[in-house]
Design a protein around this nucleic acid. Structure first.
Length: 552
RNA sequence: GCGCCUAUAGCUCAGCGGACAGAGCAUCGGUCUUCGGAACCGAGGGUCGUGGGUUCGAAUCCCUCUAGGCGCGCCA
């Protein structure tokens, strides 16, 4: 990593400055290397002198000049200059940059796999929607966030598992069973009223029809409760199947489908609760059992076992996280929840802490609401009302690539409007096409070279010296930093901005530098560069879960 | 009422305590046209919601207020 190199150089320079008395012997502040937004300030910069000036009361520019004089020569680093008010700017060497083309080609798609020291086993749990109805648009946001983060973590050297938690127990499932049974009665022509808390969507009617298709008498001779549960189980299976299929459309898959029910059957529920009990975190009150989260700074306690003896959702979720951390021993657990679960975040963190787990290992991303608009009209998305826009409808209308890019390009913690009309109408102007077009252009150039029988294996990359060429290389070298940034901040939206930047510098290079020309040596060198760009752009698109089209 | 999130160009949004606040779309003007014009170049457009504070330095950190969203159940 370049930043690492520069930090080392600065650390050594500072030590040398202290040894020679130019700098007082104080403990150095954390050295931060940033990328200046103005390219005139070089490739990297540090404001270390400004920070040192504060503690040493010396002139920052003087410190900067002194440090620069102590910076050891390095094959990667060219110019190092001190500038007012107290920055040190680094510029990378052009010949080193050019050589990176070979490095990228040699390493292929894995070139940016950074091995972070902290890398370990990480679990990302996302979507985890109750299997009581189809996925809607908001779920798509979580699905895309989660699957992209998983890609990024894998690229950063972590061992990642993607998991879907199936809520196959509890009240909502019960309501689902009762709703389905009612629809079944109606299907048979009986008069039956949907339950108060039922699922009213038409999909429930379709579901019954589907289950009964060609098998009308399968429940005929069974007693009522058995019909309800038999029907319910079949319905669940079908809906889970639909959820899987819908996610597949978006390019989202899971390694583990984890059953809530299994926490009760496998004993984790009991173990988790007795662990809390032993820690003194449970108390009896009003006939129920409470988790005393106020002891951990929460504003209120929460019920874990109702007065009728049944566990709350919170209780099973505690058991679930007990299983994640203490049974399966993940180093990091990331949950992606919708904004409607906000109230659950802090008490869950408290519960994790109560089980003796380092809260740093537990991260929750809450993705804010997505409101749908059709033209000017707002569409409220609710699963229980009949009026829903499903994720499937959205993907079929807009396309998976555009969908992914659109959702990814906003930070998770800001709410977003998704205007279906606009998404369709502007599809030609959608940045996704801009980025993919760059990729198609690249493959087209390489195709031409192949058709002309140009073998560029022996191309000499030291011929790559012009500004558009070096700018492209600089941008390509940024990807590992983006991957690291996202792994640390859990903010995958940076990828979309990077993809557009990369496409832009490629288009600019293309415009200014003829690749296949009469200058054979230069052609070969540039073909190598184009091939490297293809690798990096393809990598970027795949991290986002998008396709890299050869033609469009 | 309490907690969390959001407020930056006409629109949609980036912006890690640092150097004149950026991009896409839209608007206006230009380029070239043998490798894909779904391209490239340029211009205009901003009291970074308001008011304070910390700092050498704030869109970024702290507090006030305003507006919008979400949450505050023995629902999940």
């Amino acid at each position: 990593m370049l930043k690492r190199t520069l930090i080392d150089l600065l650390t050594q320079a500072a030590a040398e400055a202290q040894r020679t008395g130019k700098l007082p012997s104080i403990t150095l502040p954390k050295i931060v290397i940033e990328r200046p937004q103005n390219t005139e300030h070089g490739d990297y910069a540090s404001s270390l002198p400004l920070k040192l000036a504060r503690v040493t009361r010396l002139n920052p520019l003087t410190i900067a000049n002194d440090l620069v004089s102590f910076i050891a020569p390095n094959p990667k680093v060219g110019q190092v200059v001190a500038t007012a008010p107290g920055f040190i700017n680094f510029t990378l060497k052009s010949d080193w940059l050019a050589r990176q083309v070979e490095v990228i080609l040699k390493a292929d798609e894995t070139h940016d796999n950074t091995k972070l020291e902290t890398a370990g086993r990480v679990q990302i749990e996302f979507v985890s929607v109750n299997p009581t109805g189809p996925l809607h648009v908001g779920h798509g946001r979580g699905a895309i966030l989660g699957s992209t983060l998983a890609n990024v973590f894998a690229a950063a050297g972590y061992r990642v598992e993607k998991e879907y938690y199936i809520n196959d127990a509890g009240n909502q499932i019960d309501a689902f069973y009762r709703s389905l049974y009612t629809r079944y009665q109606q299907y048979l022509g009986e008069v039956a009223e949907m339950p108060e808390d039922g699922y009213l969507g038409d999909y429930m009617v379709d579901l019954v029809r589907e289950i009964m298709a060609g098998n009308d008498d399968r429940f005929r001779h069974l007693p009522k409760p058995e019909i309800a549960s038999g029907l319910g189980k079949l319905g669940l299976e079908k809906i889970i199947g639909q959820i899987k299929a819908d996610l597949e459309l978006l390019g989202v898959s899971f390694d583990v489908w984890f059953s809530e029910q299994s926490l009760h059957e496998g004993g984790q529920y009991q173990e988790a609760l007795s662990r809390l009990q032993q820690g003194g975190y449970l108390s009896e009150k009003e006939g129920a059992t409470w988790f005393v989260s106020t002891a951990l700074g929460e504003d209120k306690d929460n019920v874990v076992i109702r007065s009728d003896g049944s566990p709350t959702y919170f209780a099973t979720d505690i058991a679930y996280h007990y299983d994640k951390f203490l049974k399966r021993k993940f180093d990091t657990v990331i949950n992606i929840w919708g904004a409607d679960h906000l109230g659950h975040v802090s008490r869950m963190k408290a519960a994790v802490a109560a089980m003796g787990i380092d809260p740093e290992q537990f991260k929750v991303i809450t993705s804010q609401m997505v409101t749908l608009r059709r033209g000017g009209e707002l569409v409220r998305v609710s699963k229980r009302s009949g009026d829903i826009i499903t994720l499937r409808e959205l993907v079929e209308e807009v396309g998976a690539d555009a969908c992914r890019f659109f959702f990814l390009s906003r930070t998770a913690d800001s709410q977003m409007d998704f205007d279906l009309e606009l998404a369709k109408k502007q599809s030609a102007d959608n940045p996704v096409y801009y980025v993919q077009y760059a990729y198609a252009r690249i493959t087209s150039i390489l195709r031409l070279a192949r058709e002309r029988g140009i073998n560029y294996e022996n191309g000499d990359v030291s011929l790559l010296t012009t500004e558009p060429e070096l700018t492209l290389i600089r941008k390509m070298l940024l990807l590992p930093e983006i991957v690291e940034l996202i792994a640390n901040t859990l903010e995958p939206h940076h990828l979309t901005y990077y993809a557009q930047d990369l496409a832009t510098v490629f288009h600019r290079f293309y415009k200014q530098c003829r690749v296949v020309s009469s200058n054979k040596a230069l052609s070969k060198a540039r073909l190598k560069l184009v091939e490297a760009a293809k690798t990096v752009l393809s990598r970027t698109l795949h991290l986002m879960g998008m396709t890299a089209p050869e033609k469009m």
